[in-house]
Amino acid sequence: MRSKRKKKNNLNKEVIVVVLITITLLVIIGISIKGNINNYIPNTVLDFISPIQRGINKIFTITSENVSGIINYRSNLKKIEELSKENEELKKKIIDIDLKRDELGSLGKLKKSLNYISEDYDKNYVSASVVSKNDGNWYTTFTISAGKKDGVIKDSIVICGEGLVGKVYEVSDNYSKAISLLNNKSAVSFEVLRKGEYTGVISQNISIDSSENFGGYLKGYLFDIKYEVVPGDIIITSGIGIYPKGIPLGEVEKVIEDKNNLLKYIKVKPYVNFKKVDKVLIIRPRIIE
């Protein structure tokens, strides 16, 4: 009997201790929320419960921060998605504007190129895009988006806003293949703008005994070594052969004399950017009688 009573008393004491601790913790939490705990509890008790209070405060702080972080994360994620969508829409608008601007610029240049053709020449022309090119940096051969159905024939002349590009050498129903002035198979008769009697031929097939680098440049020779051509002279098509007279070719960069063979060569910087040719006009070749 005494043993049972003793056990019961011990159990009651444990329950009372647990209840007291619980009440104390609740009081501490309440006081911590309302004000400074130092004003209500003795120092001896504070020394005991301070670590507990700090732990509880830390738990509440971490929990609060995590909940706030989750809420802010979802909110920020939504904002990021909205901004990303707006950014994509703006990109599309910018691309559309740039494409339209480039298209208008190209059309303006093509219209300008019609002025190169004399009034007495048939100006029937076809507008087309370059759809493919040869490997390498320079356009030597390329394909255009116009063919027999559009009125393109073999030897048709290809021009752009800057000047002469080349000529067509093969035609299918919807596409045509062309060579540029940089192609070894291309040859164009030219004259010097300031003095029409200074004439010659532009051809990449010319062999010049010189260490000069002709990458991206045109090579030519003059029919007479006495022609006083100088750097800066503008050369145009002379009207001999399939090309009508007056289409710009480029400017003389350098004059190279071969006194042993009594020849005078020229290095010409072309007006056409043969690294980038997009829009072109195709006109019929000049009729050779």
Results as ranks from 00 to 15, higher is better:
S3R: 12
Y175M: 08
N39E: 14
I236K: 03
K154D: 09
E14K: 15
F274R: 03
S172W: 05
D173C: 03
Y40P: 01
Y221H: 12
C160N: 15
G216F: 01
V252N: 01
G105V: 06
N137F: 13
K93A: 08
P248F: 00
G105H: 07
S186C: 06
D278K: 08
I234S: 06
D278R: 07
L110S: 08
V67P: 00
P244G: 03
Y243M: 02
S207V: 15
V17C: 15
V168L: 00
E289D: 12
K91I: 13
L90C: 01
I94K: 03
M1N: 14
L83N: 08
I29P: 06
I23V: 15
V130W: 02
A128I: 05
I94W: 00
D209C: 07
G69D: 01
Y227S: 02
K34R: 08
T44K: 15
K109E: 15
P51V: 04
V252Q: 01
D258T: 04
K78Q: 12
D47P: 03
K269P: 02
K100S: 11
V192P: 03
G136Y: 11
I235T: 04
N66P: 04
I153T: 11
L181T: 00
I49N: 03
V229P: 00
I37Y: 04
S64M: 13
E228D: 15
D47Y: 14
T22Q: 08
I97G: 02
L182A: 04
R74W: 14
N10A: 14
K259V: 08
Y265I: 02
I70F: 09
L114Q: 03
I256H: 05
E253G: 01
S50Y: 10
S32K: 09
I21D: 09
I94T: 01
D96N: 08
K177V: 09
Y217R: 09
A128P: 05
S75M: 11
R284C: 02
I95V: 09
F274K: 00
A146L: 02
V27K: 04
Y139L: 07
F48G: 11
G220N: 01
N12E: 14
I29V: 13
V277A: 00
G239M: 05
I242F: 01
V168E: 02
C160P: 07
Y265S: 00
V15F: 15
P285R: 04
D98E: 11
I282W: 00
I153A: 07
K6H: 14
G147M: 07
T143W: 10
S203D: 10
I242N: 01
Y169T: 11
P270A: 06
S238I: 00
I97D: 06
I202K: 02
V277P: 00
V201G: 10
T143M: 12
V19S: 14
S68H: 11
K149S: 15
T61N: 12
K219V: 07
N184K: 10
Q204R: 11
G30R: 03
N260L: 13
Q53R: 15
I62D: 10
V45H: 05
V19R: 14
K8A: 15
L182M: 04
S127T: 15
N273F: 04
K79Y: 10
G215N: 15
I235W: 04
Y169S: 12
L164S: 02
V201M: 15
G55R: 03
I52Y: 08
K276R: 09
L20E: 14
K276P: 02
Y139C: 08
K111D: 11
I33H: 11
N124G: 07
L77Y: 14
N273Q: 04
K109F: 12
S106I: 05
K100M: 09
